[in-house]
């Protein structure tokens, strides 16, 4: 039976690919759940930090930290969060596209750009483009930690303090649901106006500052920005896993379709061979 052997080996190889994609799908699904949990865990910190900063604004409106002052944007910093590994659909590409759009927009206005890239895919992409990458970190894994991000974020914060950057954004994928993630760009610095909270406080009051308002505010705002980036990184992991799960599911489905098509071709070839053989026997018998 010519041809059938090739078809059979092809089926076997597609089947083994399907096994791999199925396993990856399941791994991504369980990692996604854990990432979602971490996303939830990260929320209270940012909310509390925001509340303190807005209290501070009410209590001490005279002191203005540089992180809160709007400057004319001559150079713009962008923190881009991407994944380390591929096989997660168009997730990274969508974030990069949104980031590039922002970059082009600022470049058109004559601003210079400084990038901070988190994740291997982003580093590879933006290095190729030749845009200045000021800081980077890769290999955060499925559980990013704040301590891994401190240095990377500090480079950008220092740039802002020293006036090398006048504005700072963060770009990452936003988790809408398992099926859809969309790129999100948020302004980190200057910190956008916070809605006033804490109405239960009396009118004229101020904190006791130990040691000084400037030092505390600096530490607080730095931690706030870091927590925002951390949240972005955690959310990006959730998106990565969701996107990978969906991508691997459709890959498994496609493999299933391919297998059933190949099976049909194989059956037909087998049947044709049998029919041919029968015809030959019948023909031979008739000739005798």
């Amino acid at each position: 039976m010519p041809g059938t052997k090739e078809i059979r080996s092809k089926i076997a190889s597609v089947k083994s690919t399907q096994k791999i994609t199925k396993a990856m799908e399941m791994v991504a699904a369980s990692k996604m759940r854990r990432a979602q949990e971490r996303m939830r865990m990260a929320r209270p910190y940012a909310a509390k930090a925001r509340a303190i900063i807005s209290h501070l604004n009410e209590a001490n409106p005279d002191y203005r930290h540089p992180f809160l002052i709007e400057r004319e944007p001559k150079s713009v910093g962008l923190v881009i969060i991407s994944t380390d590994r591929g096989l997660c659909g168009a997730l990274n590409t969508n974030v990069f596209k949104a980031a590039l759009l922002l970059i082009r927009e600022w470049q058109a206005k004559g601003a210079s750009i400084g990038l901070c890239v988190i994740g291997g895919k982003g580093l590879a992409f933006f290095r190729r483009l030749g845009l200045p990458v000021l800081a980077s970190i890769t290999g955060l894994g499925d559980r990013p930690h704040v301590r891994d991000l401190i240095g990377t974020v500090k480079v950008m914060l220092d740039g802002y303090r020293e006036g090398r950057l006048d504005r700072l954004y963060v770009a990452h994928a936003q988790f809408l649901n398992t099926m859809s993630q969309k790129p999100q760009i948020q302004q980190l610095l200057p910190i956008p106006a916070l809605e006033a909270g804490g109405t239960e406080l009396q009118e004229h009051w101020d904190y006791i500052y130990e040691p000084s308002a400037g030092d505390i505010l600096d530490g607080l705002l730095m931690r706030y920005v870091e927590s925002q980036v951390y949240q972005g990184a955690v959310e990006n992991v959730g998106c990565e896993m969701a996107a990978r799960m969906v991508a691997m599911k459709s890959a498994s489905d496609n493999a299933g379709k391919l297998i059933s098509e190949l099976q049909l071709i194989y059956n037909k070839a087998r049947q044709a061979a049998i029919t041919k053989e029968l015809a030959e026997i019948v023909g031979g018998a008739a000739a005798v």
């Binding site: 901070c116 800081a135 480079v155």
Partner: peptide, 9 residues
């Protein structure tokens, strides 16, 4: 840490 991040870049 910042130095390391810069150098990685």
């Amino acid at each position: 840490a910042a130095l390391a991040a810069r150098q990685r870049a």
